[in-house]
Nucleic acid binder design. Structure first.
Lengths: 192, 192, 192, 192
DNA sequence: AATGAATGAGGCTTCATTCAT
DNA sequence: TATGAATGAAGCCTCATTCAT
């Protein structure tokens, strides 16, 4: 195993450990000491890979709900089934547990920087969804009482609602079941 | 002013200060020192009123979304307009700013105790909503494809979705507008 | 003993301890732990009085060679004996040991800030000396081949030379003896 | 280029880098990492050439003011001009900047070992100067009120005074000008 | 009841040094 | 001989909490 490969593994071990602990106990309660113990490296090594403890949390953005948004891009008619399967796919890839989603949400809430990232990502996703809904309106799938912008926004809101309610202990234990049921209602609500 | 009144005022000053700072900077970043400075009391006084710093956060539950749930109890047909006006009423009384809602959400996420409170409150609310939806189904307002339990759950989810999306920067600046628009879609989605 | 008096004593205990240790072992080798142990207070108390470890060193400026410069201001003819007695007086009040002077010199050398303070102080002292030498030249005490500015500068240099050579182990053990002998030669060198 | 030559060059690169950084930022603030980065070698290499970081500072003695003292040995009458030109020569060869002299002074102050080296060197120089002054007294160049030992000591003190005052920002920008002016006064002060 | 000085456990981070490659 | 990833002891500093006044 080459040096570079070893480095990648070390960094991964640290990230995974931090990941696990943050999601179980939250950022502030997780000590660097805990992370390195779980990762099986020394404290010095931790700071060889991350300048501060806070720097690790940025890797959490990797698993934000927006990470796979680009997959939504080439959706064609009929919109609903493909959109739904895309959303399911995103959730599937995120591989969330309730506690992991809570940790991710806390990460978003815990710093102005992360919050701004969230807003940027949300706007990007919104921009992707707008033409999709426009198209859907033209083909008669969706109500025209609401603008495509609003429809895009409500979709994101629905998605966040499912995730948040679920991570706070509500809904079905299986996130995807909950997601499908919720969007069933939602799509009916915005149908023409 | 009597001694008891003075004490109540002091406690209120502390709570309000903590309240403001938690909502602006989060729980962990807010120091007891900051709170007492803003409240205009000494550190010693703080600990005369609250055994620990964490004890203050429990007062945040005062503004949880469940605080006014009992007002939902005597809803009669037709369900939709009264339910909607109740929800609006709750939001109105909460007097949220985006940052205040973020703080409340962080408070819920930041301790197992608060999370359990949330779950208890949610279940209480759910218990209140179930007969309402049952009634609504009987009178033909709501679809019968979903159980009253599910409808209650989806309502809570919708409510949380609006609040979360909004506090993270999404939706209309006016929370009530956003709420009405969202529940319009939702009620259409669960109509019979 | 009042609270304020107690505070002054605590701060003094810390300063004195730091003072002693810095002069014996140097700034970097002295740990905050050492200081508080010697001062008989806790680490927390240290940081109640000084925001950082470095902040303590600024108190060292109190014993800089310039601290009593203002006493030079009202010197009248003949200049030499009064100037000499002033210099002796300054040294006397500084109460230097060789190691303490070394520590003070290191403090000056160890940060750009302290160095700038030194330069400022030096220029103030120089400004005080210039009219004195001007006066001394007019009354015929000093050579006119050198400007009053240069004479002031050479005086400071001589003073620093004595202190530095002495603290590095040279000269008489008694600093004042060394100072008098040196300025005897110096004043002869700049006599008219 | 032979292997030995390569090694010498590597060591020189390290020494020069350390040299530069110590003089700019001081010993403690200069990290081994900084040195090796500037020298263009790895950390491992550094420790192949020097057992510890502190070992590098001993190379600073190369540029101590005593390094060329032996040139003073065969001074003949008249003493003053030759002594002065020797001192100028020493300063010239040292090639000091103010910051470099500060670094050298800090090196002397920063360890008991270096301080002892300074004292040894000073005593050697003193031993060289004593017969010179004795000779100068016999030929009538210098006052007999002071012993040759004292004269030697005052000379060293003057030299150190010039260097210290200058490196702390005082005197002429050109060190040699400052040196000549100062020793002019000094030699007049010790003339017979 | 109010004060704020004192506490000290415990956190994050630094950095000279080692050693396997 | 050169490399640089890994190490871990040790340092500075924070801050909730206590308690004498």
């Amino acid at each position: 195993m080459g040096r570079e490969e070893k480095k990648r593994q070390t960094k991964l071990a640290i990230t995974n450990a931090a990941f696990k602990l943050f999601s179980e106990n939250g950022y502030e309660s997780t000590k660097v000491e805990d992370i390195v113990k779980l990762a099986g490296v020394s404290k010095g090594t931790f700071f060889n890979y991350f300048p501060t403890k806070e720097a690790v949390i940025e890797d959490f953005e990797r698993i934000s709900i927006y990470s796979e948004a680009e997959k939504l891009m080439n959706i064609t008619s009929p919109v609903v089934p493909k959109l739904l399967s895309s959303l399911i796919n995103i959730v599937h890839n995120l591989n969330y547990t309730r506690s992991l989603r809570r940790a991710t949400l806390m990460a978003t809430l815990s710093s102005a920087n992360n919050l701004n990232n969230h807003i940027d990502n949300m706007n990007n996703l919104r921009a992707l969804l707008i033409p999709i809904f426009k198209h859907g309106q033209e083909t008669g799938e969706f109500t025209q009482k609401l603008s495509p912008e609003t429809l895009a926004d409500l979709t994101i809101q629905m998605f966040i609602g499912v995730l948040t309610h679920w991570c706070l202990g509500g809904g079905e234990d299986d996130l995807i079941t909950q997601l499908m049921m919720s969007f069933d209602v939602f799509f009916k609500g915005i149908s023409s």
